[in-house]
Design a protein around this nucleic acid. Structure first.
Lengths: 138, 138
DNA sequence: ATACTAATTGCGAGAGATTCGCATCTTCTT
DNA sequence: AAGAAGATGCGAATCTCTCGCAATTAGTAT
């Protein structure tokens, strides 16, 4: 019997690649598959991009990570623990700011009550212009 | 001097392709570049996909259309006039529902006041599960 | 410890979406 | 009517992500 481990607890096999992918997502905050691969390669140069994609998908299936589409092409991945905030994506500078989920509470409730739409707040990307990119006067 | 026209007013040349792309976006509500091309081909079979992409970009630059990423790969384009509602994207069935902007008014104001983030409501995609995909009981 | 089965990895090919370069053709201007 | 700038078509090139397959590895049973 193998020793307990957070990955095994989820019914997953424990491979170096898988652990490194998860660790990379956690350290990077939010990152594209490419960025995750780059990060992993620091300690495990041989890892294949396919493996990164497959592990991200696997980890998402068991709820350890989640992905969001923040605008441009690619998806970005987050560790599940860190999804306690909304993502404010600035269309100008591309920065991704955070805001606590509570800010959206009323909004989410309205959508649920009036439209039967159950918003997935953790999968939430909000577009706009961040403070830094708004002309100070005007 | 050419006659006035909404496209010329924006400093753009008037080509059949350009007009058709704009018309297609307006008629389709929200559509991917592929769908726009398909629509245009009904009356102008020879149009090239590159041309559609380029015109969508051009039209976006002058503010006549806008695009949003509704989740999966591709971008979808909307006519600027029609952006009077939010998009509720269902992660399960992929459907795109609508809700009036007002629902988000408070939310938007909170973000502006507390975080200096100017939300672009028209460029807003909300993820979640639509009424049809939520198990009725459970 | 050893053998076994199923999951996982690497790798290369492949699909889908979008962009680019370039020669040709159009639009708008003079 | 002629010219310059801009737009179109076409094909090639990118990028991103997915798949199939054989070789490898983890976890389990013996």
């Amino acid at each position: 019997m193998a020793e307990p481990h957070e990955l095994r607890d989820k019914g997953l096999r424990l491979t170096p690649q898988r652990e490194l992918v998860l660790a990379a997502v956690r350290e990077l905050g939010h990152a594209t598959p490419e960025e995750v691969a780059e990060k992993v390669r620091i300690t495990h140069p041989g890892i294949n991009l396919s493996t990164v994609y497959r592990n991200l998908e696997t980890l998402e299936n068991v709820g350890l990570v989640q992905h969001t589409h923040l605008g441009h092409g690619g998806a970005t991945y987050h560790a599940a623990e860190e999804l306690t905030h909304l993502h404010l994506v600035c269309g100008k500078c591309g920065s991704v700011g955070d805001a606590p989920i509570d800010v959206a509470a009323n909004f989410v409730n309205s959508l649920a009550d009036d439209y039967g739409f159950k918003t997935d707040v953790t999968h939430f990307a909000i577009y706009g212009t961040c403070a830094a990119c708004i002309p100070t006067d005007v």
